[in-house]
Amino acid sequence: ELKKVVALYDYMPMNANDLQLRKGDEYFILEESNLPWWRARDKNGQEGYIPSNYVTEAE
């Protein structure tokens, strides 16, 4: 089971490997080892790295 998180803030990608975050949207965490960058997937199936301090665990 993948960990689900909710974006606390918008995040615009800095490079091609990053994933855009939209405040309030849910994302699945694929990999937590790259702290403070986590690999995530959005609801459309896009994958990339996000800043872990921009998300919180979903209820």
Rank of each mutant, 00 (worst) to 15 (best):
P13N: 03
E32D: 06
I29S: 02
F28P: 02
E26H: 05
Y9I: 08
L21Y: 00
V5R: 03
A58W: 06
S33T: 13
N15I: 08
D18F: 10
V5Q: 03
K43W: 06
P13V: 04
K3H: 04
V55K: 01
Y27P: 02
D18K: 09
G24K: 03
F28T: 11
L19E: 00
W38L: 13
K4V: 08
K23F: 03
N17D: 12
N34P: 14
E47C: 07
W38F: 10
I29G: 00
M12D: 10
N34Y: 06
A16V: 10
L30P: 02
Y11R: 15
K4T: 10
K3C: 04
L8A: 06
K23Y: 05
E31P: 05
L2H: 05
V5K: 03
A40C: 06
M12R: 13
Y49R: 15
D25M: 13
A7L: 00
K4A: 05
V6P: 01
N44T: 14
Y49A: 10
L2K: 07
Y49D: 10
P36L: 07
N44L: 11
Y9A: 15
E57S: 12
L35G: 12
T56Y: 04
K23P: 02
V5H: 03
Y27G: 01
A7Y: 00
V5L: 03
I29W: 00
R41A: 06
D42V: 00
W37P: 04
A7V: 01
L8V: 09
D42R: 02
E57T: 13
P51M: 06
Y54A: 14
A16Y: 05
A7N: 00
E47L: 05
Q46C: 14
G48F: 01
L19A: 01
L8W: 03
S33C: 10
P13C: 03
M14L: 11
R39D: 02
Y49V: 11
W37L: 12
M14V: 14
E32W: 07
E47T: 09
Y49G: 03
P51S: 04
K43Q: 13
I29C: 05
N17P: 06
T56Q: 15
Y49F: 10
A7E: 01
G24I: 01
I50Q: 00
R22H: 08
D18R: 13
L35V: 12
L35C: 07
F28S: 11
V55Y: 01
R22A: 10
S52N: 11
I50K: 00
S52H: 05
G48H: 00
Y27A: 03
K23T: 06
I50M: 03
W38V: 14
F28W: 15
L2G: 11
I50G: 00
Q46E: 13
G45A: 08
Q20P: 10
K3N: 06
V6E: 05
M14W: 06
E1N: 12
P36V: 08
W38E: 07
F28Q: 08
E57C: 09
L19F: 02
E26Y: 07
A58L: 06
Y49N: 14
E1S: 04
Y54K: 05
E57G: 13
I50Y: 01
K43T: 12
